[in-house]
């Protein structure tokens, strides 16, 4: 099958049942997208499909053929970090950082839908992403920082 990932075309030899997560990580070595639970409950595997956040662990790769897939590796352009990545760095959000890719991708998707969400909208939008280190208040601060960067 042919997948369009980060604006690049990849031909993959894979069974139709294979999850997008396994294809990204094992076949294409795009390991920025993480495995956390395998049932769409933790958000570590979040990628964008046509700009919308999707859990790649419960998405079959075959089902997103021809669609625009964006992973954490595709966010920065010309060595310039995406405003959400920059914001999370500015705020120094993370501890173990294993959730970072998913948090960044979910935030990008959230801010695309709603560039200036309220705290309640942020909580609802991010409820599916787990940070076991409990950096949620920092992520919240990082999202506000990202809103500020994107506005300017």
């Amino acid at each position: 099958m042919d997948l369009i990932i980060n604006k690049k075309k990849y031909s993959v030899n894979s069974t139709p049942e294979e999850s997008l997560l396994n294809v990204l990580r094992n076949d294409l070595d795009l390991t920025g997208t993480k495995y956390g639970c395998g049932e769409g409950s933790c958000g570590a595997c979040t990628v964008l499909i046509n700009d919308v956040a999707v859990r790649s662990c419960i998405t079959k790769a075959a089902s997103v053929e021809g669609k625009a897939i964006t992973t954490i590796e595709g966010l920065a352009t010309n060595d310039k970090l995406h405003p959400v990545q920059q914001a999370f760095l500015n705020v120094d959000v993370f501890q173990c950082s294993y959730c970072a890719s998913g948090m960044v991708m979910s935030t990008v998707s959230l801010l695309k839908k709603k560039p200036e969400p309220t705290d309640e909208e942020i909580i609802n939008g991010m409820q599916g992403n787990v940070c076991r280190c409990g950096t949620y208040p920092r992520i919240m601060k990082g999202i506000h920082e990202a809103i500020k960067i994107q506005k300017s």
């Binding site: 390991t31 920025g32 992973t71 590796e73 966010l75 970090l81 990545q85 760095l89 993370f94 950082s97």
Partner: peptide
């Protein structure tokens, strides 16, 4: 700030997994 922070927000850091 976390000294290798950028390698995490870009997904570049290689965890064992």
């Amino acid at each position: 700030k976390k000294v290798n922070g950028e390698s995490f927000v870009t997904g570049r850091h290689k965890y064992v997994s």
